[in-house]
Amino acid sequence: MGIKLKYEVDGEDFTRAGEASGDIKKTLKKLGFPPETVRNVAIAVYEGEINMVIHANGGEITADLSEDGITVVLADKGPGIPDIGMAMKEGYSTAPDNVRALGFGAGMGLPNIKKYSDGMEIDSVVGEGTTIKLKFLPKQ
């Protein structure tokens, strides 16, 4: 088994944020990945997808699925993260009030992504964009 999935995330439409994560979740479930793995991937990718829409005007998500593990790359051409250390702290958020009114921007996005994944690499350049690579190991 080796499946590659690719999604364009629309940065203009908040209501559609989560479609890619939902589809990845459905695919993993269909392929028979363990429920905990399916949930961890879904939550981490959903947080990343929401971040793309809130902060970066969209981006691209690719997922490589195999029995040995799942790799997800979230890439955007947004403003970049000036201080990754701060962004990783629970409660730190640069989201504006209109985003908080939608139920996000509590400063839990990146910490959550780290919590639910088995490996996380962030590569961000201010003014150019951010790429987050996530690794998940199937849990029985």
Partner: peptide, 11 residues
């Protein structure tokens, strides 16, 4: 908003 349902779906 629809993200309430999306959040429920993921969880």
């Amino acid at each position: 908003n629809p993200q309430v349902v999306r959040t429920a779906e993921m969880m």
